[in-house]
């Protein structure tokens, strides 16, 4: 075993840097790209931020599916704006990850090779229009609940990206709520469609907060580093507490017979989550895993000529500028 004191004898330089990092974390300050940071901190952030970026990009797919079929021009315009926002969020996050020393190309390659993860929620399909409502209300709702505390993440570029994302995300949740509310005020068939979508998305949205605290091995370290501020179960509980009154306004039933307010704990009691389903989807056996990756790979490969053309145009322009400067001189 090597104690910190021994380290300072072996490598005084390192221990000064490490002490400074620890001081910044202890003071709840921020770490910036050129600061020294432990390898494990860097790796954890690269994994988390790139997964987060991948989720935004893959998350465009289940909704873009409905752009051509939106029930009105207004809904089509809203959906396009939302999908464009997801692309923007992906870019903010890729940029934040790039400050840690991984390239955009590497992240894209890892994603389309199936080596990088993204939120398993996007492996579910969107068979009805009500799914657009349920995704906005439940999936984006859960994402906001997760992301608001990330605005204070100790890594500066990540926190700043999250501030921008959260600001834009609230419209996503509200438009989803509105879609479901309008369906619930419609015909019997529309009400059934809304309830069916809520039934299908409720549990997967609760799984977005990750495994229960006692089975989440990396949580403690992430909390010690001020990347994560609240535990998975705390955030899940907070989310359910917000959903219940919203569901009442809407008139939908949350599909958990055991869901009830516990006067003693001041929280909602709920059924056990079926994690076998979560693990199946995570392992690649969800309804649309293969389809999502196939489309992402195609989009990347089909877009290669655009990237090449832009690169070639830039090269020619700078060559011409150089030649013109030469002619003047």
């Amino acid at each position: 075993m090597t104690s910190p004191a021994d380290l300072s004898v072996v490598d005084p330089e390192l221990s000064v840097e490490e002490a400074r990092f620890n001081d910044l974390i202890a003071a709840d300050s921020r770490i910036e790209p050129r600061d020294w940071m432990p390898d494990a901190y860097r790796k954890t952030l690269i994994r988390q931020i790139s997964q987060h970026a991948n989720s935004e990009i893959i998350g465009m797919q289940p909704e873009s599916n409905w752009i051509t079929r939106a029930p009105s021009l207004k809904r089509k315009a809203i959906l396009m704006a939302k999908v464009q926002d997801e692309a923007g969020h992906g870019l903010y996050l890729y940029s934040a990850a790039q400050t840690l020393g991984i390239t955009r190309e590497e992240m894209t390659e890892q994603l389309i090779a199936g080596k990088a993860r993204y939120s398993s929620i996007f492996n579910y399909t969107t068979p009805t229009w009500a799914d657009m409502g349920a995704i906005g209300w439940l999936v984006d709702g859960a994402a906001i609940c997760n992301q608001v505390p990330l605005c204070r993440a100790s890594y500066g570029p990540y926190g700043r990206a999250m501030v921008r994302i959260c600001k834009e995300e609230s419209f996503h949740q509200r438009q989803g709520f509105e879609i479901l509310l309008e369906l619930m005020q419609g015909t019997e068939a529309q009400r059934e469609m809304a309830q069916d979508a809520v039934n299908r998305w409720y549990w997967p949205s609760l799984m977005m907060f990750g495994p229960p605290d006692d089975q989440s091995p990396n949580s403690a370290q992430s909390m010690a580093w001020n990347i994560k501020r609240f535990s998975n179960d705390e955030l899940r509980q907070r989310f359910v507490g917000m959903l219940v009154p919203q569901a009442e306004v809407m008139g939908v039933t949350l599909p958990d017979p055991n869901l009830r307010f516990n006067e003693e704990t001041g929280e909602y009691d709920m059924s056990e989550i079926d994690w076998t389903e979560f693990n199946e989807v995570l392992a690649g056996r969800g309804p649309a895993n293969a389809e999502r990756l196939r489309r992402r790979r195609e989009a990347h490969e089909d877009g290669a000529w655009v990237r090449e053309a832009a690169h070639e145009y830039a090269r020619k322009q700078s060559e011409r500028a150089l030649a013109a400067a030469g002619a003047v001189a």
């Binding site: 704006a81 464009q84 926002d85 923007g88 870019l91 903010y92 940029s95 790039q98 955009r104 700043r160 990206a161 921008r164 834009e168 832009a310 690169h311 145009y313 830039a314 322009q317 700078s318």
Partner: peptide, 23 residues
């Protein structure tokens, strides 16, 4: 407001408009 990668200055301005001024 942030940063981005782009092949040249014109594309950087256009991408910045799409990425940072949607609202």
């Amino acid at each position: 407001v942030g940063s981005l990668h782009a092949p040249d200055a014109d594309m950087a301005v256009r991408n910045a408009r799409d990425l940072y001024t949607r609202r």
